[in-house]
Nucleic acid binder design. Structure first.
Lengths: 350, 350
DNA sequence: TTGAAAGCGCTAACAT
DNA sequence: ATGTTAGCGCTTTCAA
């Protein structure tokens, strides 16, 4: 059908259709002021020739490329293995689909990585905007971009850097709901297991933990708080440590850590939820199914991604800071359910 | 230091430096014909103002954007979970770093997804080239792109679609090496466990299996061949089925399937490698460490990604088809080692 | 060594 | 409703 559109331009299409380049441009951009029969004729030529407008020329005159840059403070391999980024990028892709944009990925690793990505992100007429995710060394990058006037949305950065649009989830409120839930189940000694302070998202969850205790009329006790790496091993270690304080429940600030916590409890012969109830935080895939299923605070990561794309758009006129709500998902690990889950081995289906 | 480069142009920089826009352009593009003192002066102004050339304008006149599109026949979530894509994109990122390009990702899902990505990929003046990975429904897309004159490199597509540049790994040769290795260890009944025929990469590995048997002077016997889904469950099922034929070794065409195979053998009380030796194929991360470690054919996926980027470049003048070699990595599952691996529990480090 | 001028392909204001 | 014209910011002859 269509031939190769080697070097077709508006002008040549116009010539073929017997109109000027402006008319072709109008057809392309759905301007109302085109006679229907002319429109049909022009569209026929476009179809037949397989003409595609030149995006560089469009971008030059309209200052818009339809490209959104994603800056991620991680190595690609890490990026692709991480369920958080997976969900986030999935949401960004959905947002792009809805707004007709595309996205480029700019992973950078460590302080030196910034130097490599910065020129591209700063270049005029290349990106319509940048979505920056918080992480190691990303704060410098973020402020640099902001100071250079980049159209920017920051994701997952708890602090209010001023003059910056950002999306995040209500971590503190989510933490409070989790712990409030445990208190409501009659737990008296709720421990906190979470990431060390350099992982910014952990601090808010800890604040929520304290909020809920105070709301329940109990004074937070830091002996029941243990911080470690935000992975299963860290959760295991922190849990082992906090068990000395004899908690009857744990709020574990990330699901991977919660996996480690469950392992620790099992090794110590403590039953979940009867001896120690557990609530996690994330709601993202954590690999193999576990038993009991984890009660956790689900954060709408995909929605965060979508929202970030919308906030980048010119015609966005919502608030500069968007905080999306979390939701408590009840599993078997908190004891709110009557029945205990039956283990089903999902892998052995011969 | 630098101020916001709101609407600086070559012209305005030239004015500030007391030269014409052409001279500024020459400085920017490292043209030799600029007096050193002038160059210094211009560079000072650029530095001070934080001027960034407009990429859209550059792209318009040079027909080059520095953007490479990655078309992947998968949903984002799947894409991000898959170690193959992780390694591939990692390589592409390295290639981009070396050539000064950036990449955009265009995931498409199912036959309808093509419609969504095609206009972007076909648009003139947007992408310098496209890297297309083989997968479900990608063949149509690939031929369409080729027919429309897109600068294209195909990855992981075994068939020779003509007029197409492609990179792939030597799967057939790799399969032959794996099976040759097993034969060399004195195995007489080597079975094949692999993906069903719609997974194109499996067929070549099966061909390699047959090649090696013939080289060893044995006639391939299809009763020793079992195909299933290319994941652990599929490997488990296919292995259970093939055990009826009493193999003394298995070549399992993907590592995830090999994980399933090991599980099946364990359940049947067969020792690896003493009763049944196992060789896999992939060499990519497969999650939790297994015991014995898997002997496998390692494919250089990252290198495939890098190569694809280079092949897209204008000044590439190598062959249209690049086949990268695989390498047999000896682990404990084939019996070539004297010592058996000791199990070390990498997760319990309290 | 430098500047002036043309033009990449498009959009949009203006004229008709 | 349609054509003409003027740029968008850059690279690249061509003159000087």
């Amino acid at each position: 059908m269509t031939e190769v559109a080697r070097s077709l331009t508006l002008e040549s299409i116009g010539k073929l259709a017997g109109v000027s380049r402006s008319t072709v441009s109008r057809v392309l951009n759905d301007h109302p002021d085109v006679r229907p029969e002319v429109r049909v004729r022009v569209e026929a030529v476009i179809e037949k020739t397989g003409y595609q407008p030149n995006q560089a020329a469009r971008a030059l005159v309209s200052s818009r490329t339809g490209l959104i840059g994603l800056v991620m403070p991680t190595d690609v391999r890490e990026l692709f293995g991480d369920p958080y980024y997976s969900a986030l990028v999935h949401g960004i892709q959905e947002g792009c689909l809805e707004t007709g944009s595309t996205f480029s990925i700019h992973p950078f690793y460590g302080p030196r990585g910034q130097v490599a990505v910065l020129p591209t992100l700063l270049a005029r007429g290349f990106l319509d905007g940048v979505i920056a995710t918080a992480g190691p060394y990303s704060e410098d990058l973020i402020t640099t971009l902001r100071d250079r006037g980049t159209n920017l949305v920051v994701v997952g950065h708890p602090a209010d850097l001023d003059g910056l649009r950002r999306v995040d989830v209500a971590s503190r409120a989510g933490g409070a709901v989790a712990v409030g839930h445990l208190c409501g189940l009659g737990k008296n000694r709720v421990g906190f297991v979470g990431p060390t302070a350099e992982f910014l998202f952990g601090t808010e969850r800890l604040d929520g933990y304290r909020d809920a205790l105070r709301t329940a009329g109990r004074e937070p006790d830091d002996r029941l708080v243990r911080l470690d790496q935000p992975n299963a091993d860290g959760g295991y270690r922190a849990t082992m440590a906090v068990l000395a304080e004899r908690p009857d429940a744990l709020f574990v600030a990330t699901d991977p850590m919660a996996i480690g916590a469950l392992r620790a409890l099992e090794e110590r012969g403590l039953r979940v939820p009867q001896d120690v109830a557990v609530v996690g935080f994330d709601g993202l895939p954590t690999g193999p199914r576990i038993n009991p299923t984890l009660t956790t605070v689900v954060q709408p990561v995909t929605e965060v991604g979508r929202t970030a794309v919308f906030m980048l758009h010119d015609d966005y006129d919502g608030p500069d800071t968007v905080i999306l709500p979390t939701e408590l998902r009840i599993g078997g690990s908190c004891g709110a359910r009557d029945t205990t889950e039956h283990a089903s081995s999902p892998t052995s289906t011969p």
